[in-house]
């Protein structure tokens, strides 16, 4: 496949076209992914999550520039919500990353959620696979900040970073349940605002709590991304975390979990596709009618639909 060959040579146009393919689920998407799979598994995938407005994009911008200085190639997938009503989206994460556009060693792609929940886009994993195969040393996935529903990022990344800012009040409380699960690194951005110390203390408490169950204690960093303050500390923590994952055998475990999640999603998608494919959709409508007319129940009908 020509595009795949070009991708493997680092061609950005090819990468962009392939991501569109998988995102649009066009006819060549499945073949592309099949072919790419053997080239994946070499990149460190980092997830960045947190409420809207905390400065995630600015932080991604700074982290990317810092990794570039270390000679690493960086892929970025930034996700913004798709409007439920119109299906359209304004994808504005590039605004904070304009200088990365012309950097040879960076590839940045914005994606709309397109109806997917969990803070990531439907084809996020597929897009990271493309960037992985392209030879990116790191791929940063910036999610939609959507409260507790961000937990799906956990299944797609090796290292997750939770970004907060002072003065968000109750939201931190609301987030706590999520924080316990995600967040290998905590970042308090906009560190020049009042209330930093309090927030840092709260996050440290959470970190202590997490350290009781695992060997990795999430570090808490204060940054001012717009002024490039605190970036280097976050970068070191990212590297430390990768080291920890590898040494502790946790990396293998996460890869397995990631693969399990990926496989599950693919199976689900395939099942769904099969359930609605061709004459099946007529069958679906027929069964639906029967359920509505109380001739059958949805549980039996579902099994019937997936028979054969």
């Amino acid at each position: 496949m020509e595009l795949v060959d070009r991708l493997l040579k680092g061609d950005k146009r090819a990468a962009a076209r392939l991501i569109s393919s998988v995102e649009n689920e066009d006819e060549r998407a499945a073949e592309v992914l099949r072919e790419l799979y053997k080239y994946t598994g070499n990149t460190h995938i980092i997830g960045i999550t947190g409420p809207p407005g905390v400065g995630k994009s600015s932080l991604v911008d700074r982290l990317t520039r810092a990794f570039r200085k270390k000679g690493k190639k960086v892929g970025i997938v930034a996700i913004d919500p798709t409007s439920r009503f119109t299906g359209g989206a304004i994808l504005g994460d590039r605004i904070r990353m304009t200088e990365l556009a012309t950097d040879e060693g960076v590839f940045m792609r914005s994606m709309g959620t397109r109806g997917h929940h969990g803070g990531i886009a439907k084809a996020t994993t597929e897009a990271t696979m493309v960037l992985d195969a392209m030879g990116m040393d790191l791929v940063i996935v910036e999610t939609v900040g959507a409260g507790q529903s961000q937990s799906e990022i956990w299944e797609c990344v090796h290292t997750s970073i939770l970004v907060e800012m002072p003065g968000m009040g109750d939201e931190i409380q609301a987030l706590k349940a999520g924080i316990l699960e995600i967040g290998d690194i905590f970042v308090v951005n906009k560190g020049d605002l009042a209330g930093v110390d309090q927030l840092v203390k709260e996050l440290e408490n959470v970190a202590e709590y997490k350290a009781m169950e695992q060997k990795w204690k999430p570090p808490v960093h204060v940054t001012i991304a717009t002024e490039d303050k605190g970036t280097d500390e976050v970068v070191s923590s990212i590297e430390d975390h990768l080291g920890y994952l590898k040494e502790s055998g946790e990396y293998q475990k996460r890869e397995e979990e990631r693969t399990r999640g990926e496989f599950t999603r693919i199976v689900q998608a395939l099942l769904l596709k099969k359930a609605f494919a061709g004459e099946k959709s007529e069958k679906f409508d027929q069964l639906l009618k029967e359920i509505i007319e109380k001739k059958t129940d949805p549980f039996t009908a579902a099994e019937k639909l997936l028979e054969e």
């Binding site: 359209g88 994808l91 605004i95 304009t98 556009a101 940045m108 914005s110």
Partner: peptide, 23 residues
């Protein structure tokens, strides 16, 4: 539609690169 907005003060180089990566 999906609209990628890149903000103010962009150079033609930045715009062309963004257009390609965003396909």
């Amino acid at each position: 539609m999906e609209v990628i907005y890149t903000g103010l003060h962009q150079t033609p180089e930045q715009i062309a690169e963004a257009a390609i990566q965003e396909d």
